[in-house]
Design a protein around this nucleic acid. Sequence first.
DNA 1: GTCTATATCGGGATAGAC
DNA 2: GTCTATCCCGATATAGAC
Lengths: 208, 208
Amino acid sequence: MDKVENTEVKILRAASQIFHQKGFNGSRMQEIADLAGINKALLHYYFRNKETLFEEVFAKTFSQIISKMKEIFLSDLPLQSKVKVFVDFYLNFILEHSYIIQFLINAIREKPESLKEIIQQHNLTPELFLEKIGQQLKEEMNLDIDPLHIYVNIIALTIFPVAAKPLLQAILSYSDEKMRLFFEERKNIVPTFIENALKGYEKKQILF
Amino acid sequence: MDKVENTEVKILRAASQIFHQKGFNGSRMQEIADLAGINKALLHYYFRNKETLFEEVFAKTFSQIISKMKEIFLSDLPLQSKVKVFVDFYLNFILEHSYIIQFLINAIREKPESLKEIIQQHNLTPELFLEKIGQQLKEEMNLDIDPLHIYVNIIALTIFPVAAKPLLQAILSYSDEKMRLFFEERKNIVPTFIENALKGYEKKQILF
DNA sequence: GTCTATATCGGGATAGAC
DNA sequence: GTCTATCCCGATATAGAC
């Protein structure tokens, strides 16, 4: 029983790693089996086929990323602290799991049908997020603006440079160490940038 | 001679479309041939193999995206106008060519070796961009800050939501029309957000 | 549950006629 | 330059022994 658990877990861990790096089409069942220390046939014993295995990995990965977002943004911290915590956590997390964002973005593009279902099942109710942020914008900063775009901006500023890292690095001809520094800097720059932008609205009180 | 041109052009157009949508591994030579209205053998006559064809498409696509960026950011418009023009142009362009950004980001991940070369050959000299923006920040807004992060922020705010559009749409359960409106809104929201952020620095004159 | 061996097929690439 | 026919490998999937 314990060994069964372990094999399944080993497979999922291996599959995650390979799928994250190479996507569905780029990944080989053989490679996943090798990494898990088993053989191909056993993959099909635990998961009917490649698709099933992939969907399992997607669901796990999606939930991993989203649950932490939920936790941070639904917490009772003041908005600016949330931003700080969010940026800090996701820059660390995504840099460690460097392909996870591209994986998610690509996955839904490659197989919209099946994956949309998985996302719906997750019962995200983004209204909750948005309402909470909207409230905080109003109460803490006296801003009566649409929280959706603010929310998207926070995520874009944090996540995009990580997703585009290899491209950015090639364009800038930066060393790995220079890139590391670049992202270290962003941990301060992004929250400051957002804070300034919001304060700008405060002063002008221009509605969207 | 003209017919030769035409066939090559037809192939490249078809290949672009397929590769943009499905990436290297997801694309079939057969599909490209069909779309171009020729047969597989002819693909190999014009381009040695799939890799060559892909690299050709990548180079063309990369240059397409970058050349317009150069044009906008090296122009003599005031900074705020540049941002406005940039956001407007790229939101339209990328939404029409909706897979182009994911294509570029993925491509360099899938085949870093060969594509890095292509990027280098392009002779981008990003220093030029950065210097120009740095100057304008100083002269127009009296800000003495690192232009790289500002630059990255502008791109991130513009491009990330488009790249993540299918994911975003699935999470928000938005209709196509609602998504269209969302991006229409961003044409104003992003420049305003950036302007506010920069004005924030101006007031505080806090250096990075 | 885990393995080896094999069926089956799809897709990139080439040979060779026209 | 363009086509048809074919080669051949690699990858998913399954059969069947242990």
